[in-house]
Design a binder for these strands. Structure first.
Lengths: 146, 146
DNA sequence: GTGTTAGTGATAATCGTTCTCACTAAGGAC
DNA sequence: GTCCTTAGTGAGAACGATTATCACTAACAC
């Protein structure tokens, strides 16, 4: 399992915007896919260590930056001073709903698109971008807390 | 100007949740009010230095944390690795539209409240909180860029 | 197979933020 | 107005996340 690649080289290459795909980047992409939720760079590094103990934290930072630049990974907030990221399969405009219990993430349709015109009209500002992150509890975490 | 207090002691005390109001905290609250836009802690510290050169960065961090705890200041994003804050007069639920040109900030009504039920229904998650920040250009900055 | 150069690992450097500690002063009690 | 308690302060060390550097390696176009 440690050496199985869950994604094709071409698929991994897409994640990195068509740049070179090294073994380290393949491992990092696989680890990110296995986490299935929001992760910090340190968490991802830990996960990567399980299959490739030699990969350094700087390499993980660089890989996350590369994937973030292509939109295949997106920052979804902060946890204890560290940036939180989540894998974003597909390139359509969406946001994230992060479970504060287990860290799982689901993509959601943009909830503010229809409000932007309102905001623009009322404030006189030209809206060029936005960040939206919802926090909540997934079904299993909500069940535990009841 | 450097020693004029733009806010009453009682007003400043509200900002800090009824806690002790020192000269430093009054200066910091005044500086934040004068900035009239989003600021980093370092920017606020610089502004504070103009009227009270002796105030340390740690004191500014503590004052911002105290005001943030009472809701009178809110984090509105990140700029170059530093947290961005903005003054929030009034305690009602709202979000911010930040001008990426000059850093000015306007409060806007929450654009996602009516979408939360949708998200909850579709994902099965219980939504407990959200962060929304809009970015754009104010009238004068939009004019300059045309 | 070769050459170019992007990517790597290790680690130092940087920078934002928090912590520590001795000292000061705000503000309540009298 | 004075005293006392303790929150707040300033300086700087410590911490932690992130980035930069550099010599080396290997992906990939040819």
């Amino acid at each position: 399992m440690a050496t199985s690649h869950t994604q094709s080289t071409a698929g991994v290459r897409d994640l990195y915007g068509g740049r070179r795909v090294s073994a380290a980047r393949r491992t990092i992409a696989d680890a990110a896919a296995l986490i299935r939720g929001a992760f910090t760079v340190e968490q991802l590094h830990d996960a990567v260590q399980l299959s490739e103990p030699g990969i350094g934290i700087a390499t993980v930072y660089r890989a996350v930056a590369a994937m973030s630049a292509t939109g295949s990974v997106a920052p979804v907030g902060y946890r204890a001073g560290s940036a939180l990221y989540a894998l974003c399969p597909g390139g359509t405009h969406h946001h994230h709903l992060v479970c504060t219990g287990c860290g799982s993430v689901v993509g959601i349709a943009c909830p503010v698109d229809r409000s932007l015109e309102d905001a623009a009209r009322k404030t006189g500002y030209t809206v060029t971008g936005h960040e939206v992150t919802l926090y909540g509890l997934c079904r299993s975490c909500a069940g535990e807390c009841d």
